[in-house]
C-alpha cells in the first residue's frame, strides 16, 4: 500500500470530469491479494494506460470494472453511478465496453455476427416479433446490420464481414474485438493488451485506430506491455505492482519514477 509520489493529476489541461473512479479497490483470491486498495480516476476524453509487470493485478482490475469479479472492498463509479452489484451486461449497457487479453470472439460465427452481438442490447425484438417477422423487427435488424457494417468499416474489416471469426488473422481478430466493443456505443472503452501478439506494422495501425476512437469522443483505458504504444497513446499512466498502485502520472513522470524503474528493472524489456 505505497502512496504514489506523483498521485496528483498532472495535466489540468484536460476537462477533468471524472468518467470512471476507482476507490480503494481490493480483491483477494484465497489468501492472495490480487488487487490491493487501488484508487485512480479516468477523466472523460482521456487515454489512460494501466501498466505493470506480469501478475500485477491489471486484468483483475478490468474484471472488477466490468463486473466479472466482485470487489471485496472499495467502490467503482462510472459517470456518477455506482457499479456495485451490477451484472456485466448492465455495466455494458451503462456505457463501458471491453476487449479481452486472450481474444474472446465467437469463433464459429461470422465477423458480422460478432459485431451484431454488440448491437444486441440496444435492440428490442423478442421471440414473438422474430417468429412473426414484424415490420418493426425487420427495420431494427436492418438498422443493426447497418451499424455493424459501419463499425467493421471503421476498423477496416468490412471486406471480411462474411468470414468466420476463427479464420481471421491474429491482428484482425484483435480489431474485430474492438469493433464488437464499439458496437455497444460505449463512453469508455477498456482494452486489455490490444497490441498483444501484433507485429510492428499492426501496432502502428492500432495506435492510429486508438486515436480515431478517441476522436469519436470515447474515453479509453488500456493495459499494454508495449511501452512505445503506451508512451505515445496515453496521457496518463497508472502503474501497478503486486496488486498495489506504485505510481500515477504522465508518461514522462512515470518513466522517471524510481519505484517504477525498480519494478521494471530486468523484468521488462523496453525495446
Amino acid at each position: 500500500m505505497m502512496e504514489a509520489p506523483s498521485a496528483v493529476s498532472s495535466r489540468p489541461a484536460i476537462t477533468a470530469t471524472p468518467l470512471l473512479t476507482l476507490q480503494g479497490l481490493t480483491k483477494t483470491f484465497g489468501g492472495l491479494t490480487a488487487v490491493d486498495a487501488v484508487s485512480f480516476v479516468v477523466e472523460e476524453g482521456s487515454v489512460v494506460g494501466l501498466i505493470g509487470p506480469n501478475g500485477a493485478g491489471k486484468t483483475t482490475v478490468f474484471n472488477l470494472i466490468t463486473g466479472n469479479y466482485r470487489p471485496d472492498r472499495g467502490r467503482i463509479e462510472f459517470a456518477g453511478t455506482s457499479l456495485a452489484g451490477l451484472r456485466t451486461h448492465r455495466i455494458i449497457a451503462l456505457g463501458i465496453a471491453r476487449t479481452f487479453q486472450n481474444i474472446r470472439l465467437f469463433q464459429r460465427l461470422t465477423v458480422l455476427e460478432n459485431v451484431l452481438a454488440g448491437c444486441h442490447y440496444q435492440m428490442r425484438g423478442g421471440i414473438l416479433a422474430a417468429m412473426l417477422r414484424l415490420p418493426s423487427q425487420r427495420r431494427e435488424e436492418n438498422d443493426a446490420m447497418g451499424r455493424a457494417l459501419k463499425e467493421l468499416e471503421f476498423v477496416g474489416l468490412r471486406q471480411q464481414a462474411l468470414i468466420l471469426a476463427k479464420n481471421l488473422a491474429y491482428g484482425d481478430q484483435r480489431r474485430l474485438e474492438i469493433a464488437r466493443a464499439l458496437a455497444t456505443r460505449p463512453r469508455l472503452l477498456v482494452l486489455d493488451e490490444p497490441a498483444g501478439g501484433m507485429n510492428e506494422q499492426e501496432t502502428e495501425a492500432l495506435i492510429g485506430l486508438i486515436s480515431r476512437i478517441r476522436a469519436r469522443g470515447i474515453t479509453i483505458l488500456l493495459i499494454e506491455h508495449d511501452m512505445r504504444l503506451v508512451m505515445r497513446a496515453c496521457e496518463k499512466l497508472v502503474v501497478l505492482e503486486n496488486g498495489g498502485k506504485i505510481a500515477e502520472g504522465s508518461p514522462e513522470q512515470v518513466r522517471r519514477d524510481p519505484k517504477v524503474i525498480e519494478a521494471y528493472l530486468g523484468t521488462e524489456d523496453e525495446a
Binding site: T66, N68, R87, T88, H89, I92, A93, A97, R98, F100, R104, L105, F106, Q107, R108, L109, A117, G118, H120, Y121, R180, A181, A183, T184
Partner: peptide, 13 residues
Amino acid sequence: EDEVAAEGSGINT
C-alpha cells in the same frame, strides 16, 4: 460460443 464474451458484449446471458 463464449458466455463471458456474450455477457461482456451486453447480452443478459
